[in-house]
């Protein structure tokens, strides 16, 4: 039986953004916030960041590393990477379908 995919409720979007931010290497909280803001054009608050980060850590999708000057970096686990790839593939399929419906893709 396949494991049930983790559910993050209203923190699903922040969780996806955090996983994406960590996909190119470990980052501490503030670096993740900057990365997300740069990528989406919208700021992510510290409260939202940690609410999502706690859930990701509990689900084993990210893991904490040793803190440096009180800043604790987090990195993607193997399960986290696989979960992220699955979510991105789903979004990509969804986007392609939408574009096809709009007639904006080549046959």
């Amino acid at each position: 039986m396949e494991p049930k995919p983790p559910e993050f409720g209203r923190f699903a979007e922040p969780s996806l953004l955090i996983l994406t931010s960590l996909s190119d290497g470990p980052k501490h909280g503030y670096a993740i916030m900057q990365d997300v803001e740069q990528g989406t054009g919208r700021p992510m608050g510290a409260g939202t960041l940690y609410a999502a980060l706690v859930r990701l850590e509990e689900q084993g999708l990210v893991e904490p590393l040793t803190p440096v000057d009180r800043r604790r970096p987090y990195r993607l686990t193997a399960i986290g990477a696989s979960n992220l790839a699955e979510q991105l593939r789903g979004l990509s399929d969804f986007a392609l379908q939408g574009l096809r419906q709009l007639g904006e893709t080549q046959p």
């Binding site: 608050g45 409260g47 800043r71 604790r72």
Partner: peptide
């Protein structure tokens, strides 16, 4: 707590934060 406070120190807190 520690790492969270370190983030709050990094930038000024606005009403949104």
């Amino acid at each position: 707590g520690d790492e969270f406070e370190a983030i709050l120190v990094e930038r000024p807190l606005g009403p949104f934060d």
